[in-house]
Design a binder for these strands. Structure first.
Length: 265
DNA sequence: GCTAAATGTTGAT
DNA sequence: TCAACCTTTAGCT
């Protein structure tokens, strides 16, 4: 289940597996058959990610554009891959490796200009080397909508989803409902830095882990599930810092979690 | 074993 | 505003 870090990790992985190789493409499910036939046997040029969008390139102008949505997944492994079953949208494979795409909101073959159009409507992605917080600040300090909604708005900042929203705001004691235009420049800079660090850690680890070891319930092993977060999905459980029950409320169509004591404004 | 909810967006109404 | 996407997992039984 993907926020920006998942897509960047995936792009890296697909590039390792397929760049510079001739790749077989098929759509056992049938919803991507025509495009798969066009790409079958072509030389793969690699994959890249921006925000939550993934692009796969071949030795032809068209580009595969994928958005995983809420429960899409791109799973890879060594051959022989499992027999195709269920709604397998796209399988890419070489003699050595396979990668299976399921459940994506978007899987389409687009013209090269289409990539620019998609990037044009996205805000700055903290995972890009040239990420630009200035354009994000400009939008943030003009909006009266809650900062918790603005953080999730992909036209403002690309790659942040519900987990990073909850955890980044908690890290700075900011209430999700606080109007974005009341944020000071210092507060915004700190939040941007935190989001950048959290996303990078996510790419490295392959999961979202925001808790410091001393704040976890279990002291041994890797933090998993609820143990890996301060407030996300911890409704009514005691805040790891102050013990106040964590609250939940819907914000921007998703459940928002916060500690009413640590995040007062 | 079953159900509901989930790290998200699109497109119809 | 809401269904669709159609998988996975947590939390019940």
């Amino acid at each position: 289940m993907p926020e920006g870090h998942t897509l960047h990790r995936l792009a890296k992985n697909l590039t390792t597996l397929f760049a510079g190789r001739h790749v077989r493409a098929s759509s056992p499910q049938g919803r991507f058959t025509e495009a798969a036939a066009l790409l079958d046997g072509r030389l793969c040029a690699g994959a890249s990610a921006y925000g939550k969008h993934l692009f796969i390139r071949f030795d032809r102008p068209e580009v595969v554009h994928v958005h995983l949505g809420l429960y899409g997944s791109f799973r890879s492994g060594s051959q022989p891959g499992p027999a195709p079953k269920g709604a397998l949208r796209l399988r890419l494979e070489t003699a050595e490796s396979y990668a299976d795409l399921r459940g994506a909101t978007v899987c389409e073959l687009i013209e090269p200009e289409g990539v620019g159009q998609i990037l044009a409507r996205l805000g700055s992605d903290p995972l890009q080397r040239k990420a630009d917080p200035e354009t994000v600040w400009t939008k943030v300090h003009r909006r009266r909508t809650p900062i918790g909604a603005v953080l999730m708005d992909q036209t403002v900042l690309a790659g942040v989803g519900n987990v990073f929203r909850a955890e980044a705001l908690f890290a700075h004691g900011i209430h999700p409902l606080r109007p974005a235009n009341t944020m000071t420049r210092d507060e915004f800079d700190a939040l941007w830095l935190t989001v950048s660090i959290m996303l990078r850690a996510g790419v490295r680890v392959g999961r979202i882990v925001t808790t410091k070891p001393e704040h976890r319930d279990r002291r041994s092993g890797q933090a998993r599930g609820e143990d890996a977060h301060y407030v996300y999905r911890r409704t009514d459980l005691p805040c790891r810092l102050c013990g106040t029950p964590v609250r939940k409320e819907e914000l921007a169509m998703r459940n928002s979690y916060w500690c009413p004591n640590c995040q007062r404004d």
